[in-house]
Simulated scan of single mutants.
Amino acid sequence: MTIMKKPLITLASAALLALGATGLQAADKHVAITQIVEHPALDSVRQGVQDELAERGHNVGENLKWSYESAQGSPATAAQIAKKFAGESPDVIVAIATPSAQAAAASARNIPLVFTAVTDPVGAKLVKALDQPGKFITGMSDMSPINKHMELVKTVAPTAKRVGVIYNPGEANSVTLVALVKEFAPQHGMTVVEAAATKSSDVQTAARSLVGKVDVIYLPTDNTVISALEVIVKVAEQNLIPVVTGDTDSVARGAVAAQGFNYYEVGRQTGIMVARILDGESPANMPVEGVQRLELFVNPGAAKRMGIMLNDSLIQSAKTVIK
């Protein structure tokens, strides 16, 4: 009797252990995150997503598998990453910036996808409508308030008549923003001069092409351009052309001023959406969200190096003044 009971107890214990292991695996979640390029704003989004998930009980290395890939600015690489993630079938794919979101939407049609830092989700053909994004897709738009940006350009450079815009025509978000610049700049007494840069190595040439043609340079939230900001700042300082951007992280890197979003908070807001999906909610019930709060950053030292002085009222109204 005793000899026969031991294998029965062992088998029962093994069954309980197997059940426990299966339960643990079932509780684990997998988030795959793809980012078109690494620069401070997009990196802040990614960190914000991770921190928000941790606050909501989804901890990397404990009960959350976290896969991250950067496309290093290449849409072709973004497509390869999207195909790889689609094959892994994670619980949620997070796509940071328009090119990565477009690639993920094309390859992972039946996997929940949350895009973020996407300027125009409808124009990029990610969703048909912001309030009804689709069965498997939703996310956040960071559409820039271009009219306010043109007001800021004019405040920084009151006598400016010609504004140069450097952008990548291959980024759908940038095409949308430049169209808005063309719409609003004339309302502030400025004509627009465009300079295209299809990859980061073209940005310096694009910046130099504006010398002698513009009074001020405006940089939209273009991932290709912002990733190479330092070369623009160098050209601007050498030729005394102030640079204003839509990316607040760029001000610490040498731009004169920016009015934009706190991208870490954009990431936190995105993380809430991701957590809701991990907890069982359908993306179909989650309209695309926008970012409402703007922050003004200024860099008086950069302004001086570019041949201008910022007025005291602008400096006093800034959330952050770079010393």
Rank of each mutant, 00 (worst) to 15 (best):
K84L: 13
K182G: 11
D91N: 14
K234I: 04
F85C: 04
V60G: 07
A95M: 03
P7K: 10
P145F: 05
A26M: 13
M1K: 15
G170P: 07
Q47P: 01
I315W: 05
T191E: 15
N147V: 12
Y263D: 01
Q269G: 02
M143P: 10
G260N: 08
Y167A: 09
K234L: 12
T34A: 05
K128C: 03
D279N: 14
T155E: 15
N285P: 06
A228E: 09
A95R: 00
T270V: 03
Q132R: 15
E171Y: 03
T77H: 10
V298A: 01
A197G: 11
E295V: 05
E265I: 09
D279V: 03
T205M: 07
L64E: 02
V118K: 07
S174N: 02
I277L: 09
A258C: 08
D142R: 04
S74T: 08
T248W: 05
Y264L: 06
V203T: 08
T176L: 12
P283T: 02
V243R: 00
A195Q: 03
M143Q: 14
T98Q: 02
G271A: 11
K128L: 09
I96S: 04
P283K: 00
T22S: 14
A275V: 01
I277N: 03
L64V: 10
S144Q: 15
L8K: 12
D131C: 06
V192R: 00
A101N: 01
A105E: 06
I232D: 10
G280W: 05
I81H: 01
V114Y: 08
A275E: 11
L296N: 09
P112F: 03
E88V: 12
Q50F: 02
G271T: 06
K5E: 14
V156L: 03
D312Q: 14
A27T: 12
V31T: 01
V178A: 08
T34D: 00
T119A: 03
E265T: 12
A303M: 12
F136V: 09
K125L: 07
K84G: 07
A302I: 09
A172W: 05
A32D: 00
P99Q: 01
Y218N: 01
N168M: 04
P121W: 00
L210Q: 07
W66L: 11
V156R: 00
Q50G: 07
M273S: 11
A196E: 15
M150A: 04
E230W: 00
A160H: 04
S141G: 08
H149T: 13
R208P: 14
V114T: 06
A78I: 06
D279Q: 13
E69V: 13
P186F: 06
A12K: 07
K154D: 06
Q259R: 14
K5L: 15
D202W: 02
A97V: 03
Q47V: 06
T98G: 04
G260I: 03
G280R: 06
S200E: 15
D249Q: 15
V235H: 07
P287N: 02
A196R: 10
P220H: 05
I315N: 09
V231D: 14
G139M: 00
I9K: 10
S44N: 13
D202Y: 04
L278H: 03
